[in-house]
Simulated scan of single mutants.
Amino acid sequence: MSPTPTETTPPAKSAPDGAAPGTRERILSAAARVLSERGYAATRLSDIALRAGVHAPGVYHYFSSRDDLVMQVLREGQRRVLQHVTAALEQGGAGTSPRDRIMIAIDAHLRLELELSEFATAVTRNLGHVPVTIREALHPDSEAYHSLWRDLLTDAVDDGAISPSVDLRVARMMVIGALNWAPEWWHDDLAPVGVVVATTQSIVGDGLFACTAPRDAARPETTTAPTALA
């Protein structure tokens, strides 16, 4: 069983006397930027402190260690991805078709990690490189996002939009894996974010929805996924 966040993460420390309001948030934002640009192995507390406008030892007033800071950044990134995609789906309305809901989720995920949130980018670029203890602590948050996609795909099968011959676990991991890989290769000069979104929607749509089947033949996903990526 994966440990819960409270079992692995020390509680957030209060600001020391004389500290400027919002210092912890500035450190988190700076860490997200550095992790997004340099990756876990090359991220140093001194670089984060410089960007946050604090002395390096001051970081320890808010975080017990470098890995504690990294974990808090990734946890916030996972929270933002789930929150943003969920909000986009809710805005779509109850009458939105299962296919359109998957297209909405693709759009929301890509726009968040490519142009809206360095926290989300930090997750996708670093989760596979951090120590196992951090990944295990973040697993419940990752699983929540995979659960959202599990429901989206199962609803599409139940609606007859996706063939029951499609292995939904594989489909889910392939789609989320492709979305998460985008920050590794995308840059402004390559293509606008809108083109990336539309191309991804077309590829996923043509692949998943190429074959349809009667609703009573639908086979929802029942197996447990490996450690999540998002």
Rank of each mutant, 00 (worst) to 15 (best):
Thr121Leu: 03
Val132Pro: 02
Leu69Cys: 08
Ala230Met: 10
Thr222Gln: 10
Leu116His: 06
Ala12Val: 13
Glu76Met: 04
Ala32Trp: 00
His84Met: 07
Pro220Leu: 02
Asp188Leu: 11
Ser29Asp: 09
Arg66Asn: 00
Thr23Ser: 14
Asp141His: 13
Ala52Val: 07
Arg79Lys: 13
Asp159Pro: 09
Arg26Leu: 07
Asn126Asp: 00
Val196Ser: 02
Ile203Gln: 02
Arg169Ile: 00
Val54Phe: 06
Gly93Tyr: 12
Arg172Glu: 12
Asp155Ile: 00
Ala52Asp: 10
His139Asn: 15
Pro192His: 01
Pro183Ile: 09
Thr199Arg: 07
Ile203Cys: 08
Ala191Met: 15
Pro131Leu: 12
Arg44Lys: 14
His146Ile: 02
Ala108Gln: 04
Ser165Cys: 04
Phe209Glu: 05
Gly22Leu: 07
Asp216Trp: 11
Thr121Pro: 01
Arg26Lys: 14
Val170Cys: 01
Glu115His: 03
Arg75Phe: 11
Leu208Cys: 06
Ser147Asn: 11
Thr227Ser: 15
Asp67Leu: 13
Pro164Gly: 07
Pro21Lys: 09
Ala108Lys: 02
Arg79Cys: 08
Thr223Trp: 08
Tyr145Asp: 09
Leu69Trp: 00
Ile104Pro: 02
Leu148His: 10
Gly18Asp: 15
Pro164Ser: 09
Phe119Ile: 04
Val175Glu: 04
Phe63Thr: 07
Val193Trp: 02
Trp149Cys: 01
Ala88Met: 15
Ala191Trp: 13
Thr86Val: 14
Ala228Glu: 12
Leu89His: 12
Ala20Trp: 14
Pro164Arg: 14
Glu136Tyr: 11
Ile27Ser: 00
Arg79Tyr: 05
Ser117Trp: 05
Asp100Pro: 09
Ile102Gly: 06
Leu127Asn: 01
Ser46Lys: 13
Ala41Val: 15
Gln78His: 07
Thr124Trp: 03
Gly128Glu: 12
Ala217Gln: 15
Gly177Glu: 13
Arg111Glu: 00
Gln72Met: 10
Glu136Val: 11
Tyr62Lys: 05
Asp206Asn: 11
Ala182Glu: 00
Gly93Cys: 08
Gln83Arg: 12
Glu7Trp: 07
Gln72Lys: 01
Leu116Asn: 02
Leu50Phe: 06
Ser163Phe: 00
Arg66Trp: 06
Ala94Asp: 15
Ile104Lys: 10
Pro21Phe: 03
Gly18Leu: 08
Gly18Trp: 14
Arg101Gly: 09
Val197Thr: 01
Thr200Ala: 12
Asn126Glu: 04
Thr227Arg: 14
Asn180Phe: 04
Leu110Arg: 01
Glu76Asn: 06
Glu221Val: 02
Val175Gln: 03
His129Ile: 14
Ile176Gln: 10
Pro21His: 12
His146Thr: 06
Ser36Gly: 12
His146Lys: 07
Ala42Ser: 05
Val123Met: 07
Tyr62Leu: 11
Ser202Tyr: 11
Val123Phe: 03
Thr121Trp: 01
Ala105Gln: 10
Ser163Cys: 09
Gln201Gly: 06
Ile27Phe: 01
Leu28Gly: 04
Phe119Trp: 02
Pro214Ala: 05
Trp181Asp: 14
Thr86Gly: 11
Glu76Ser: 05
Leu74Val: 08
Thr133Cys: 13
Leu208Arg: 10
Ser29Lys: 13
Ile203Gly: 07
Thr133Met: 13
Pro21Asp: 08
